[in-house]
Amino acid sequence: MLEKMLKQRFFRLLSEYSQRKVSASEFAEAIEELAIHLADFSINEQDYSVLLRYFSFGLHRLKSYRMRFEQEKNTLLAFD
């Protein structure tokens, strides 16, 4: 279940962000795909504990990427 979430294009783009330039439209499309996936998943999943773990995992993943980006930004600013 969690592996399927990591394979979503949104999370792949986040992980590739430091390696290549990602356009805003790519992110927008990936967010739309993720939203559709999450909506489908939540409609089909009857166990709320599974939903909570799924959403918590995604939130944790986003926070870790945010921290990494902030660290990279601070490092770049320190060199300027």
Rank of each mutant, 00 (worst) to 15 (best):
M1D: 11
L2Q: 14
L2D: 13
E3D: 14
M5P: 01
M5H: 08
L6V: 02
K7S: 05
F10V: 03
L13A: 04
L13H: 03
L13V: 04
L14F: 06
L14M: 14
L14K: 08
S15E: 13
E16I: 01
E16T: 00
Q19L: 11
R20F: 05
R20L: 02
R20V: 00
K21G: 01
S25P: 00
F27Q: 02
F27T: 02
F27G: 00
A28W: 01
E29F: 04
E29G: 03
A30F: 06
A30Q: 10
A30H: 08
I31T: 07
I31W: 00
E32Y: 04
L34T: 09
A35C: 02
I36N: 05
H37C: 07
H37E: 09
H37W: 13
L38H: 10
L38K: 14
A39L: 12
A39M: 14
A39R: 15
D40K: 13
D40M: 14
D40P: 03
S42N: 14
S42M: 12
I43A: 06
I43F: 04
N44A: 15
N44F: 12
E45F: 08
E45S: 10
D47F: 15
Y48S: 13
Y48T: 07
Y48E: 00
Y48C: 05
S49W: 08
S49I: 03
V50S: 05
V50Q: 11
V50W: 08
L51H: 08
L51V: 09
L51P: 04
L52N: 12
L52R: 10
R53Y: 12
Y54W: 14
Y54P: 00
S56Y: 05
S56H: 01
F57A: 08
F57L: 09
F57G: 02
G58S: 10
L59G: 05
L59S: 11
L59M: 13
H60R: 15
R61H: 08
L62Q: 12
K63T: 03
K63I: 09
S64E: 10
S64C: 06
R66E: 10
R66G: 05
R66N: 09
M67V: 09
M67G: 05
R68T: 07
R68C: 00
F69C: 01
E70P: 00
E70R: 01
Q71M: 03
E72C: 03
E72S: 08
K73M: 03
N74Q: 06
N74F: 03
T75L: 11
L76Q: 01
L76D: 04
L77T: 06
A78C: 04
D80R: 06
